[in-house]
Design a protein around this nucleic acid. Sequence first.
DNA 1: CCAGACGTTGTT
DNA 2: GTCTGG
DNA 3: CCAGACGTTGTT
DNA 4: GTCTGG
Length: 421
Amino acid sequence: MCGRYALALRPSQIRQQFQDYNIPVDDAPEDEGDDAPRQSYNFAPGYHGMVYRVDVGDRGSAHREVATTATTSDRKELEERSQDQEADVSSDGLTNSAIQEPSSFGEDKETSSNSRPQYKLQSMKWGLIPFWTKRNPDYAAVLKTINCRDDSLAQPGGMWNTMKKGKRCIVVVEGFYEWLKKGPKEKVPHYVKRKDGKLMLLAGLWDCVTYEDNGQRLYTYTIITTSSNEQLRFLHDRMPVVLEPGSEEMKAWLDPKRHEWSAELQTILKPYRGELEVYPVSKDVGKVGNNSPTFVIPVASKENKLNIANFFQQKGAAGKVKPEATVKKEGGDEEKKTVEELQKTTDDGGMDTSGKGIKREAESPSPSEAPPTKKAVTGSVSPVKARLKISATKNPVRSPAKGKGKGDGSQKITKFFGNSA
DNA sequence: CCAGACGTTGTT
DNA sequence: GTCTGG
DNA sequence: CCAGACGTTGTT
DNA sequence: GTCTGG
């Protein structure tokens, strides 16, 4: 599946890639700033990553987003959906109205920028938290939503029900890691990326939650998994759903008009058919917090420390490293220390590629909120088991008559992406 | 009616 | 939020 | 996802 | 083993 990946590019670089693929980007985070995603060769759950999705814009003015072919029922549903917490955060008041600069991206040979949806890159936190969640959930609970199985979307109801209809997205990665189990103890990390070198665009879902005690919006996402393709079967039985940049499938996946789950959408969630590159990498990627461009470099076999040492020597940062220190020995302790030294040296020396990958998340939503961690308790009381749970609103509302029926809304839309199906 | 789950992977 | 179980 | 911690009493 | 942190 997908529990760790690489995303070292800056937002502006990602945006450029999208434009190279002829994929429109109407908005994106700044390279520096609070809403910038983390850049890391060792990107882990809980980090803020890069998500691409339709930008619904503010509520109430949904009309302007409706394509000319839209029916009145489409219009109605658009407005219904717009109450789902989806006000634009990126708008500091200026946004709305006329800011649609159609200039920046690819060929806007058409003046169609008024009739197509707006798309944006956005920083969100990995590990989906549904909008109805009341309090900051348990860490373990969040871990269980870093992925979403394709077959669980095929079933009606469930946790994903609202998101699969209206909050589909693309998760942008350069490649992902998978640990091959060679024994009960030994795991060898492998890196998986596209052979053609393009960004890997993963099918995902997103949501936005506001906890009771804190008015902040928190955007989160999950990555959809499916069966592995033939190429990855030796590694693992699951893999993320990889979409072709600019393809009709990608367009359909993001299409806001498709506001019901359908066989077509389900069909998109299939094992990747294209060519991948798969190879073992440094075991150091296993330790979260380590971050090095060497993590995406192939490693000869089990002895990967040597490659790392070579890399650092290239950078001129590891002059003091003795060659023999990198040789694998029985004393695991000693060699670990050596690697730490290596990496520490690099951090100080400033490796341009890692850049702000060292940046830490500023997670505290508000200074007033107590940390969710366990508190020290006096006396002989056993450790607190204050399990923070996701609790739903228990709300005495009668179930509204479901606005059911109606067509699939599979209207034809004006073209945006370069077609490459 | 209310209370509680709602999720994934991997290992057994 | 929606659905299930009691 | 993996790696790493997992504890107490008493004194300052 | 279970839980936390990244």
